[in-house]
Nucleic acid binder design. Structure first.
Lengths: 171, 171
DNA sequence: CTTTCTGCAAACACTTTGCAGGGTC
DNA sequence: GACCCTGCAAAGTGTTTGCAGAAAG
Protein backbone atom coordinates (compact mmCIF):
# COMPACT_ATOMS: atom_id res chain seq x y z
CA UNK A 1 0.00 0.00 0.00
CA UNK A 2 2.88 2.32 0.72
CA UNK A 3 4.99 0.92 -2.12
CA UNK A 4 3.22 2.23 -5.21
CA UNK A 5 4.67 5.70 -5.15
CA UNK A 6 4.89 7.63 -8.37
CA UNK A 7 8.55 8.43 -8.94
CA UNK A 8 8.15 10.56 -12.04
CA UNK A 9 8.28 13.84 -10.12
CA UNK A 10 10.18 15.12 -7.14
CA UNK A 11 9.07 13.57 -3.90
CA UNK A 12 5.98 15.33 -2.62
CA UNK A 13 5.60 15.95 1.06
CA UNK A 14 3.28 12.98 1.27
CA UNK A 15 5.82 10.69 -0.33
CA UNK A 16 8.51 12.00 1.91
CA UNK A 17 6.22 11.44 4.79
CA UNK A 18 5.52 7.88 3.73
CA UNK A 19 9.19 7.15 3.43
CA UNK A 20 9.75 8.61 6.84
CA UNK A 21 6.96 6.47 8.10
CA UNK A 22 8.59 3.29 6.82
CA UNK A 23 11.90 4.34 8.30
CA UNK A 24 10.31 5.13 11.61
CA UNK A 25 10.84 8.85 11.26
CA UNK A 26 8.59 11.83 10.73
CA UNK A 27 4.98 12.36 11.45
CA UNK A 28 3.79 8.79 11.02
CA UNK A 29 6.38 7.51 13.43
CA UNK A 30 5.72 10.35 15.80
CA UNK A 31 2.09 9.37 15.80
CA UNK A 32 2.94 5.74 16.30
CA UNK A 33 5.07 6.62 19.29
CA UNK A 34 2.08 8.38 20.77
CA UNK A 35 0.07 5.21 20.46
CA UNK A 36 -2.00 6.71 17.66
CA UNK A 37 -2.67 5.31 14.19
CA UNK A 38 -2.05 6.28 10.63
CA UNK A 39 -5.22 6.32 8.58
CA UNK A 40 -6.50 7.35 5.19
CA UNK A 41 -8.21 10.54 6.41
CA UNK A 42 -5.14 11.63 8.32
CA UNK A 43 -2.90 11.08 5.35
CA UNK A 44 -5.24 13.03 3.11
CA UNK A 45 -5.49 15.92 5.50
CA UNK A 46 -1.76 16.02 6.03
CA UNK A 47 -1.26 16.09 2.28
CA UNK A 48 -3.53 19.06 1.80
CA UNK A 49 -2.03 21.19 4.54
CA UNK A 50 1.56 20.31 3.77
CA UNK A 51 1.20 21.05 0.07
CA UNK A 52 -0.48 24.37 0.54
CA UNK A 53 1.42 27.57 1.06
CA UNK A 54 -1.69 29.38 2.17
CA UNK A 55 -3.29 29.61 5.58
CA UNK A 56 -6.16 27.20 5.36
CA UNK A 57 -9.18 27.05 7.60
CA UNK A 58 -10.82 23.79 8.60
CA UNK A 59 -13.54 24.57 6.09
CA UNK A 60 -11.00 25.15 3.30
CA UNK A 61 -9.38 21.83 4.01
CA UNK A 62 -12.70 20.09 4.17
CA UNK A 63 -13.75 21.41 0.79
CA UNK A 64 -10.44 20.39 -0.74
CA UNK A 65 -10.55 16.94 0.79
CA UNK A 66 -14.16 16.49 -0.14
CA UNK A 67 -13.36 16.45 -3.85
CA UNK A 68 -11.36 13.25 -3.53
CA UNK A 69 -12.80 11.77 -0.36
CA UNK A 70 -16.45 12.73 -0.02
CA UNK A 71 -16.73 10.40 2.92
CA UNK A 72 -14.42 12.33 5.22
CA UNK A 73 -16.30 14.58 7.60
CA UNK A 74 -15.54 17.93 9.14
CA UNK A 75 -15.20 16.38 12.57
CA UNK A 76 -12.23 14.36 11.44
CA UNK A 77 -10.62 17.46 9.96
CA UNK A 78 -10.84 19.20 13.29
CA UNK A 79 -9.55 16.21 15.21
CA UNK A 80 -6.63 15.70 12.86
CA UNK A 81 -5.72 19.36 12.88
CA UNK A 82 -5.59 19.30 16.64
CA UNK A 83 -3.30 16.30 16.43
CA UNK A 84 -1.03 17.97 13.89
CA UNK A 85 -0.79 21.06 16.05
CA UNK A 86 0.11 18.91 19.03
CA UNK A 87 2.93 17.24 17.11
CA UNK A 88 4.21 20.67 16.13
CA UNK A 89 3.80 20.30 12.39
CA UNK A 90 1.13 22.95 12.22
CA UNK A 91 0.63 26.32 13.80
CA UNK A 92 -2.85 27.48 14.60
CA UNK A 93 -3.52 31.12 13.86
CA UNK A 94 -6.51 33.10 15.01
CA UNK A 95 -6.66 36.25 12.97
CA UNK A 96 -10.04 37.26 14.28
CA UNK A 97 -12.21 36.27 11.34
CA UNK A 98 -14.21 33.86 13.44
CA UNK A 99 -12.34 30.80 12.31
CA UNK A 100 -8.87 29.42 12.92
CA UNK A 101 -6.31 29.06 10.15
CA UNK A 102 -3.49 26.58 10.00
CA UNK A 103 0.03 27.01 8.72
CA UNK A 104 2.35 24.16 7.89
CA UNK A 105 5.75 24.55 9.49
CA UNK A 106 7.19 21.04 9.38
CA UNK A 107 8.13 21.45 13.02
CA UNK A 108 10.55 24.29 12.60
CA UNK A 109 9.17 27.64 13.64
CA UNK A 110 10.54 30.47 11.58
CA UNK A 111 8.87 33.51 13.04
CA UNK A 112 7.58 35.84 10.37
CA UNK A 113 5.11 38.66 10.14
CA UNK A 114 1.65 38.34 8.65
CA UNK A 115 -0.18 40.91 6.59
CA UNK A 116 -3.94 40.97 6.72
CA UNK A 117 -5.84 43.06 4.25
CA UNK A 118 -8.72 44.87 5.89
CA UNK A 119 -10.48 45.15 2.57
CA UNK A 120 -10.25 41.75 0.88
CA UNK A 121 -9.25 39.69 3.90
CA UNK A 122 -6.23 38.13 2.26
CA UNK A 123 -3.47 36.89 4.57
CA UNK A 124 0.14 37.06 3.38
CA UNK A 125 3.34 35.76 4.92
CA UNK A 126 6.36 37.99 5.09
CA UNK A 127 8.61 34.99 5.00
CA UNK A 128 11.41 36.78 3.20
CA UNK A 129 11.89 39.43 5.85
CA UNK A 130 13.90 38.31 8.84
CA UNK A 131 11.94 40.13 11.49
CA UNK A 132 14.31 38.98 14.20
CA UNK A 133 17.24 40.72 12.61
CA UNK A 134 15.15 43.71 11.72
CA UNK A 135 14.61 44.48 15.38
CA UNK A 136 12.27 41.94 16.88
CA UNK A 137 15.18 40.36 18.70
CA UNK A 138 15.80 43.61 20.55
CA UNK A 139 12.16 44.04 21.47
CA UNK A 140 11.97 40.46 22.70
CA UNK A 141 15.04 40.82 24.83
CA UNK A 142 13.73 44.01 26.37
CA UNK A 143 10.33 42.48 27.02
CA UNK A 144 11.59 39.29 28.58
CA UNK A 145 14.00 41.09 30.89
CA UNK A 146 11.73 43.94 31.87
CA UNK A 147 8.68 41.76 32.51
CA UNK A 148 10.45 38.52 33.48
CA UNK A 149 8.43 36.88 30.76
CA UNK A 150 9.56 33.61 29.26
CA UNK A 151 8.75 34.03 25.57
CA UNK A 152 7.70 30.92 23.72
CA UNK A 153 6.23 32.34 20.58
CA UNK A 154 6.14 35.71 18.86
CA UNK A 155 3.36 36.96 16.71
CA UNK A 156 3.58 40.04 14.55
CA UNK A 157 0.57 41.01 12.47
CA UNK A 158 0.00 44.05 10.33
CA UNK A 159 -3.52 45.07 9.41
CA UNK A 160 -3.96 47.35 6.45
CA UNK A 161 -4.52 47.42 2.71
CA UNK A 162 -2.78 45.07 0.30
CA UNK A 163 -1.34 46.17 -3.01
CA UNK A 164 -4.34 45.16 -5.10
CA UNK A 165 -6.85 46.82 -2.83
CA UNK A 166 -4.88 50.07 -2.73
CA UNK A 167 -4.64 50.07 -6.52
CA UNK A 168 -8.19 48.90 -6.97
CA UNK A 169 -9.25 51.98 -5.09
CA UNK A 170 -11.23 50.01 -2.57
CA UNK A 171 -11.47 51.60 0.80
CA UNK B 1 -30.34 64.42 35.20
CA UNK B 2 -26.87 65.44 34.18
CA UNK B 3 -26.59 68.18 36.79
CA UNK B 4 -26.29 66.22 40.03
CA UNK B 5 -22.64 65.33 39.76
CA UNK B 6 -20.73 64.61 42.89
CA UNK B 7 -17.91 67.13 43.05
CA UNK B 8 -16.18 65.79 46.13
CA UNK B 9 -13.64 63.71 44.21
CA UNK B 10 -11.73 64.16 40.99
CA UNK B 11 -13.91 63.90 37.93
CA UNK B 12 -14.42 60.28 36.97
CA UNK B 13 -14.41 59.33 33.34
CA UNK B 14 -18.19 59.28 33.37
CA UNK B 15 -18.37 62.79 34.76
CA UNK B 16 -15.83 64.01 32.29
CA UNK B 17 -17.82 62.35 29.61
CA UNK B 18 -21.03 63.97 30.76
CA UNK B 19 -19.39 67.36 30.79
CA UNK B 20 -18.07 66.73 27.33
CA UNK B 21 -21.52 65.70 26.31
CA UNK B 22 -23.01 69.00 27.46
CA UNK B 23 -20.25 70.93 25.76
CA UNK B 24 -20.72 69.01 22.54
CA UNK B 25 -17.36 67.27 22.81
CA UNK B 26 -16.25 63.70 23.40
CA UNK B 27 -18.02 60.46 22.95
CA UNK B 28 -21.54 61.69 23.63
CA UNK B 29 -21.23 64.40 21.04
CA UNK B 30 -19.61 62.03 18.62
CA UNK B 31 -22.54 59.72 19.02
CA UNK B 32 -24.98 62.55 18.59
CA UNK B 33 -23.30 63.58 15.38
CA UNK B 34 -23.82 60.05 14.11
CA UNK B 35 -27.52 60.38 14.79
CA UNK B 36 -27.26 57.96 17.70
CA UNK B 37 -28.49 58.43 21.24
CA UNK B 38 -26.99 58.55 24.71
CA UNK B 39 -28.62 56.11 27.08
CA UNK B 40 -28.21 54.64 30.52
CA UNK B 41 -26.82 51.29 29.34
CA UNK B 42 -24.32 52.99 27.06
CA UNK B 43 -23.11 55.25 29.82
CA UNK B 44 -22.73 52.32 32.17
CA UNK B 45 -20.81 50.26 29.67
CA UNK B 46 -18.58 53.16 28.78
CA UNK B 47 -17.83 53.69 32.43
CA UNK B 48 -16.77 50.12 32.97
CA UNK B 49 -14.46 49.89 29.98
CA UNK B 50 -12.93 53.32 30.43
CA UNK B 51 -12.19 52.76 34.10
CA UNK B 52 -10.58 49.39 33.63
CA UNK B 53 -6.97 48.96 32.74
CA UNK B 54 -7.50 45.34 31.87
CA UNK B 55 -8.61 43.75 28.66
CA UNK B 56 -12.22 42.92 29.30
CA UNK B 57 -14.36 40.51 27.39
CA UNK B 58 -18.03 41.11 26.73
CA UNK B 59 -18.80 38.61 29.45
CA UNK B 60 -16.52 40.40 31.93
CA UNK B 61 -18.27 43.66 31.22
CA UNK B 62 -21.65 42.06 31.50
CA UNK B 63 -20.89 40.61 34.91
CA UNK B 64 -19.56 43.94 36.13
CA UNK B 65 -22.55 45.86 34.80
CA UNK B 66 -24.96 43.30 36.11
CA UNK B 67 -24.13 44.16 39.73
CA UNK B 68 -25.54 47.65 39.38
CA UNK B 69 -27.89 47.23 36.46
CA UNK B 70 -29.33 43.73 36.44
CA UNK B 71 -31.67 44.76 33.66
CA UNK B 72 -29.00 45.33 31.04
CA UNK B 73 -28.55 42.36 28.76
CA UNK B 74 -25.59 40.86 26.99
CA UNK B 75 -26.98 41.88 23.63
CA UNK B 76 -26.69 45.52 24.53
CA UNK B 77 -23.12 45.01 25.69
CA UNK B 78 -22.20 43.60 22.30
CA UNK B 79 -24.00 46.34 20.43
CA UNK B 80 -22.44 49.10 22.49
CA UNK B 81 -18.98 47.62 22.20
CA UNK B 82 -19.33 47.56 18.45
CA UNK B 83 -20.33 51.21 18.58
CA UNK B 84 -17.38 52.12 20.77
CA UNK B 85 -15.01 50.35 18.44
CA UNK B 86 -16.48 52.21 15.49
CA UNK B 87 -15.94 55.56 17.19
CA UNK B 88 -12.33 54.57 17.86
CA UNK B 89 -12.50 54.65 21.65
CA UNK B 90 -11.97 50.93 21.95
CA UNK B 91 -9.75 48.42 20.26
CA UNK B 92 -10.99 44.91 19.77
CA UNK B 93 -8.42 42.20 20.37
CA UNK B 94 -8.74 38.58 19.43
CA UNK B 95 -6.08 36.67 21.29
CA UNK B 96 -7.40 33.30 20.29
CA UNK B 97 -9.17 32.33 23.49
CA UNK B 98 -12.48 32.06 21.72
CA UNK B 99 -13.72 35.45 22.83
CA UNK B 100 -12.84 39.02 21.96
CA UNK B 101 -11.32 41.43 24.45
CA UNK B 102 -11.59 45.17 24.44
CA UNK B 103 -9.02 47.78 25.31
CA UNK B 104 -9.82 51.39 26.05
CA UNK B 105 -7.64 53.77 24.08
CA UNK B 106 -9.57 57.04 24.22
CA UNK B 107 -9.06 57.37 20.51
CA UNK B 108 -5.29 57.55 20.54
CA UNK B 109 -3.59 54.41 19.42
CA UNK B 110 -0.27 53.87 21.12
CA UNK B 111 0.95 50.59 19.69
CA UNK B 112 2.32 48.32 22.35
CA UNK B 113 3.10 44.66 22.70
CA UNK B 114 0.93 42.19 24.60
CA UNK B 115 2.10 39.31 26.70
CA UNK B 116 -0.14 36.29 27.01
CA UNK B 117 0.67 33.67 29.57
CA UNK B 118 0.15 30.19 28.18
CA UNK B 119 -0.29 28.83 31.67
CA UNK B 120 -2.64 31.18 33.50
CA UNK B 121 -4.03 33.06 30.52
CA UNK B 122 -3.21 36.49 31.88
CA UNK B 123 -2.81 39.28 29.34
CA UNK B 124 -0.37 42.09 30.08
CA UNK B 125 0.34 45.33 28.26
CA UNK B 126 3.91 46.34 27.60
CA UNK B 127 2.94 49.96 27.59
CA UNK B 128 6.24 51.18 28.93
CA UNK B 129 8.29 49.79 26.10
CA UNK B 130 8.25 51.87 22.95
CA UNK B 131 8.20 49.06 20.45
CA UNK B 132 8.40 51.48 17.55
CA UNK B 133 11.74 52.83 18.68
CA UNK B 134 12.95 49.37 19.62
CA UNK B 135 12.80 48.28 16.02
CA UNK B 136 9.20 47.90 14.98
CA UNK B 137 9.48 51.06 12.90
CA UNK B 138 12.20 49.46 10.81
CA UNK B 139 10.24 46.26 10.30
CA UNK B 140 7.14 48.23 9.31
CA UNK B 141 9.04 50.31 6.81
CA UNK B 142 10.58 47.23 5.26
CA UNK B 143 7.24 45.44 5.11
CA UNK B 144 5.30 48.29 3.60
CA UNK B 145 7.89 48.97 0.93
CA UNK B 146 8.66 45.38 0.07
CA UNK B 147 5.02 44.27 -0.10
CA UNK B 148 3.43 47.58 -1.09
CA UNK B 149 1.24 47.15 1.95
CA UNK B 150 -0.49 50.14 3.49
CA UNK B 151 -0.19 49.45 7.21
CA UNK B 152 -3.06 50.65 9.36
CA UNK B 153 -2.43 48.82 12.57
CA UNK B 154 0.38 46.78 14.09
CA UNK B 155 -0.07 43.95 16.49
CA UNK B 156 2.73 42.34 18.41
CA UNK B 157 1.93 39.49 20.77
CA UNK B 158 4.25 37.31 22.79
CA UNK B 159 3.03 33.97 24.06
CA UNK B 160 4.91 32.39 26.92
CA UNK B 161 5.08 32.13 30.67
CA UNK B 162 4.57 35.07 32.98
CA UNK B 163 6.70 35.73 36.04
CA UNK B 164 4.34 34.10 38.54
CA UNK B 165 3.86 30.97 36.47
CA UNK B 166 7.59 30.54 35.97
CA UNK B 167 8.19 30.94 39.68
CA UNK B 168 5.18 28.88 40.61
CA UNK B 169 6.77 26.06 38.71
CA UNK B 170 3.71 25.53 36.53
CA UNK B 171 4.47 24.20 33.13
C1' DC C 1 -44.33 61.87 17.83
C1' DT C 2 -40.61 60.01 15.28
C1' DT C 3 -36.66 57.34 15.41
C1' DT C 4 -33.38 54.86 17.90
C1' DC C 5 -32.45 51.58 21.57
C1' DT C 6 -33.44 47.66 24.37
C1' DG C 7 -34.28 42.85 26.06
C1' DC C 8 -35.70 38.54 24.88
C1' DA C 9 -35.51 34.53 22.25
C1' DA C 10 -34.02 32.52 18.29
C1' DA C 11 -30.59 32.18 14.88
C1' DC C 12 -25.73 31.88 13.74
C1' DA C 13 -20.97 30.14 12.68
C1' DC C 14 -17.32 27.55 14.25
C1' DT C 15 -15.85 23.88 17.04
C1' DT C 16 -16.30 19.94 20.29
C1' DT C 17 -18.33 15.71 22.17
C1' DG C 18 -21.06 11.13 22.71
C1' DC C 19 -21.75 7.07 20.66
C1' DA C 20 -21.98 2.88 17.80
C1' DG C 21 -19.77 0.92 13.98
C1' DG C 22 -15.49 0.23 11.25
C1' DG C 23 -10.42 0.20 10.59
C1' DT C 24 -5.58 -0.37 12.19
C1' DC C 25 -2.08 -2.81 14.15
C1' DG D 1 -8.91 -9.30 18.90
C1' DA D 2 -7.97 -4.98 21.40
C1' DC D 3 -8.13 -0.47 20.84
C1' DC D 4 -8.13 3.61 18.15
C1' DC D 5 -10.46 6.30 14.68
C1' DT D 6 -14.51 7.73 12.14
C1' DG D 7 -19.03 9.79 10.84
C1' DC D 8 -23.17 11.33 12.33
C1' DA D 9 -26.00 13.99 15.15
C1' DA D 10 -26.31 16.67 19.03
C1' DA D 11 -24.39 19.86 22.17
C1' DG D 12 -21.50 23.91 23.12
C1' DT D 13 -19.19 28.22 22.49
C1' DG D 14 -19.31 33.38 21.67
C1' DT D 15 -21.77 36.52 18.90
C1' DT D 16 -25.57 38.46 15.92
C1' DT D 17 -30.32 39.34 14.45
C1' DG D 18 -35.61 39.92 14.39
C1' DC D 19 -39.06 41.84 16.77
C1' DA D 20 -42.27 44.42 19.75
C1' DG D 21 -42.17 47.49 23.39
C1' DA D 22 -39.55 51.37 25.90
C1' DA D 23 -36.96 55.47 25.78
C1' DA D 24 -34.53 59.57 23.79
C1' DG D 25 -34.82 63.82 21.49
Amino acid sequence: MFSKLNRSHRASSVERHMNDFRRGKGWGAQIKRMGRRMTVPRRAIFKVVSNSSKHLSAEDIYMEIHKKYPGIGLTTIYRTLKLLVKTGLLIKHEFGEGCARYEYTAGKIKEHAHLICMSCGKVQDCSDIDIEKFGLDKISKEVSSRYSFNIKRKRLVFHGLCEECVKGGKK
